[in-house]
């Protein structure tokens, strides 16, 4: 259940950013979670509700963009979805793939701040 640790880091980072931008409250945090990142989106949402309590994110939403795992076979140029669990072999020429193109993301991409009242 490391989603709670991860949610706590997300809340801390968002609070820091809000302070730096002179905002008191955060409306939403957008994150990208790769399907091979080892993080369960539902567990992250649940943990976020716990982690945000008593912070500037008290009522903030967590918007999760799930990123599919993809790989490219360098020798033959085939770009393919690896699936979960991943199958890291080229479906066309059956060579092992050397790297993923996507699917390991665990990142904050944006925060939405409540505009200070004018």
């Amino acid at each position: 259940m490391h989603e709670l640790s991860i949610a706590t880091v997300i809340v801390e980072r968002a609070e820091e950013l809000a302070r730096r931008h002179g905002a008191e409250r955060v409306d939403a945090v957008r994150v990208r979670v790769g399907e091979l990142a080892g993080v369960v989106p539902d567990a992250l949402l649940f943990s976020f509700e716990v982690a945000r309590q008593g912070t500037a994110l008290d009522e903030a939403r967590l918007l999760i963009e799930e990123v599919p795992g993809r790989a490219r076979c360098e020798p033959c140029g085939t770009d393919f979805a690896v699936g979960v669990p991943p199958f890291l072999w080229c479906p066309r020429c059956e060579r092992p793939c050397e790297r993923l193109l996507s699917g390991r993301e665990l990142e904050i991409t944006a925060i939405e701040l409540e505009e200070a009242s004018v």
């Binding site: 880091v9 997300i10 905002a23 665990l106 990142e107 991409t109 944006a110 925060i111 939405e112 701040l113």
Partner: peptide
């Protein structure tokens, strides 16, 4: 009105 701040940071960047 809200404003969007783009960030690009791995959640576990500090670790």
């Amino acid at each position: 009105m809200c404003r969007v701040v783009d960030v690009r940071q791995a959640v576990l960047a500090k670790n």
